[in-house]
Design a protein around this nucleic acid. Sequence first.
DNA 1: TACCTAAGTGGTAGTGACTATCACTGCGGT
DNA 2: ACCGCAGTGATAGTCACTACCACTTAGGTA
Lengths: 208, 208
Amino acid sequence: MADQHSTLRARRRAQTQQLIQGHAVRLFAERGYDATTVNDVAEAAGVSPMTVYRHFPTKEDLVLADQHGRLVAERVVAAPAADLPLVHRIGGALIGSAAALTGDDRGREFLLTRLRLMISTPALRAKHLDNQYALQQAIIDALGEEAADPETAFHARAAASACLAALHTALVRWAEDDGRSDLPGLIAKALAAVFGESPLSPGDVAGR
Amino acid sequence: MADQHSTLRARRRAQTQQLIQGHAVRLFAERGYDATTVNDVAEAAGVSPMTVYRHFPTKEDLVLADQHGRLVAERVVAAPAADLPLVHRIGGALIGSAAALTGDDRGREFLLTRLRLMISTPALRAKHLDNQYALQQAIIDALGEEAADPETAFHARAAASACLAALHTALVRWAEDDGRSDLPGLIAKALAAVFGESPLSPGDVAGR
DNA sequence: TACCTAAGTGGTAGTGACTATCACTGCGGT
DNA sequence: ACCGCAGTGATAGTCACTACCACTTAGGTA
């Protein structure tokens, strides 16, 4: 929705963001997150500190910013099998998104570096978990009209939070394996560990 | 382990901590977390800003500091029914801790105020979720010797994370109800929503 | 009882994340 | 050709947090 214009300005904006984030993640991985100042990042990217803050509201966002959350939420809503249990819809969306995300090697390596930072740096880990929580609420809101009464809503929130907890467990394990294992498979295994050993049917995986 | 002496010094220390935290939570609730500086808290408590930082490493800890996590971990380990499924052991410990925690009215009201701050303030919410994650790892470590091989450990981590996700869902709901509903009951319901409709047997609730 | 170590407290001067406000430049639409 | 605004930069601030300093006093010891 942002590139409806695809104007030159928007392209340059996206380009600068990518430039800044690239240098930021590289420096954080090299020197450590706390040991690297925003000024260092700005200097490395060849921009002013002000510009960094314009594109990334906080230092943490330099690592955490992505649109994966939005994609997942869209996937849940666009799930073809709306009659399936909620857990399967969310789980399928998570697995499908993970498959799309780990597709190309370049993106996977970058994601892995960011993930390692998120796990090892307390400030990043905390905000990342909060982002997961925001994603949970986005999912609930996305299919909110289906659960009007409080009991159903509570049930849905519990289920969604458990799904994302399983996702997080899988992500940590994937990072520990240095991305060598199959992420969608890990997520499926984590979900199965939580909700019981019912393997997801192929139709459950939304979008792929 | 700190009050092995129960000396005068230790008592005064605990007293000062309680004094500072009391004023902090009150001010945060009245004026808002971001609008209140650590200096304001120090002034209200009648101590120097230095002293605040000595007792609470970060501003967030003024709201988040408690020993509930330690109690929960101990409860899981001390569970009488070590042969029960992991989920039941953790769930039982959570429910039991919640029951003990919401016992007296004075403590419950304070807990409720802190919880409201944790939910509404992004910085507090993030760090609180990270604390929950630390608790998860503490639980896993506490019964770590039982799960040596990676597969079992992965399963245990997924289960523990889902339990804590259910706990969080229940806590949010409890805060929305202004603490009027039964917290242990909410936790049990959230756990049931995640893991299936098997109600916990009385024996599962560790410690009470 | 006199003494001594260390814990608890306070002051000062920092660093670094983040904000408010100003001015400047160049793309994009009229 | 021309205006408007998005993008960028510099300056000066606020505030969380951290050494590093000195002072007081509790708690054990000679």
